[in-house]
């Protein structure tokens, strides 16, 4: 396939994936928005009003970046894991495997679908958060970079999960037992400076901490982590996971007997 044919193929997967989650917007867009609105009301307004400022920001404002990024992480991941696993389950992944599509185009196509959903939900949640918080964007470049890079990273992670998954249970195990705890412990609701020194050190091993803090820096200008270090870590994870995912697709793991 020449470059223009590859571009057509990429656009085909991207549009197909976009239409997939838009078609079922009641399941894909609305629930995370409602969940985040409840977080804003309960943790931000009701409980947050009883908590003092953190790093000079109201508690409501402080948790907004983390909650937006949590929506991005969850939706990028779940879009790809459910879409790719469904394609495996219904066997329509074979439509791509028998075609001359290179595997990196398949991978890029699914990532683009994950990013599209992550960004769509992220923007929607951001709009909702404006009803509760009047934050100003500190650095648009860093905000957008973290927004998109995080989305890419978790879209790839979702695909790797789907490659290994053999049942619908397998696509919920990682989000439930790994992703959610890491996200909640990644500093959405608190600054790690509030933790004892030991737990601060332990928290540094959580990659999601870097993303949330970098995103918080982009929006509010405050972070527990050096932003450059955070960006380097996110990009490094993307490179590692992309290479792993491509290698799995090339070997046909979970797809070809």
């Amino acid at each position: 396939m020449n470059f223009s044919q590859q571009l057509i193929a990429f656009k085909t997967i991207m549009v197909k994936e976009y239409l997939r989650f838009i078609r079922i917007w009641v399941q894909t867009i609305i629930p995370p928005v409602i969940t985040m609105a409840l977080y804003f009301i309960i943790f931000g307004q009701l409980i947050g009003s009883q908590i003092g400022d953190i790093d000079g920001y109201r508690y409501m404002d402080y948790i907004v970046p983390g909650l937006i990024l949590m929506a991005v992480i969850t939706n990028s991941y779940s879009n790809v894991v459910s879409s790719f696993f469904s394609a495996k389950f219904q066997k329509n992944i074979e439509e791509m495997i028998i075609s001359p599509l290179p595997n990196y185009i398949i991978l890029a196509g699914y990532i683009s679908g994950g990013v599209a959903r992550g960004v769509t939900v992220g923007i929607t949640v951001t709009v909702v958060s404006m009803f509760f918080s009047d934050f100003q964007i500190h650095s648009l470049g860093i905000t957008l970079a973290v927004f998109v890079l995080t989305s890419i990273l978790f879209a790839i992670a979702g695909l790797i999960n789907a490659v290994y998954a053999r049942s619908f249970d397998d696509i919920t195990i990682i989000p439930t037992f790994v992703l959610t705890p890491l996200t909640y412990l990644g500093g959405i609701f608190y600054s790690i400076k509030m933790l004892p020194e030991f737990w601060q050190t332990v928290s540094m091993a959580n990659p999601i901490l870097y993303m949330i803090n970098a995103f918080r820096y982009g929006l509010l200008g405050v972070s527990d982590i050096d932003v450059t270090t955070a960006l380097v870590i996110i990009v490094a994870f993307i490179i590692i996971l992309f290479t792993l995912a491509l290698s799995l697709l090339n070997k046909g793991v979970g797809i070809k007997p």
Binding site: A9, T12, S86
Partner: peptide
């Protein structure tokens, strides 16, 4: 049967062509 049952018939064909760069 190995197509996405939740896609319209014509989209299945157009997407398949797209995978071949058409």
């Amino acid at each position: 049967f190995n197509f996405n049952i939740f896609e319209p018939v014509i989209e299945i064909l157009i997407n398949q062509a797209g995978f071949y760069g058409i």
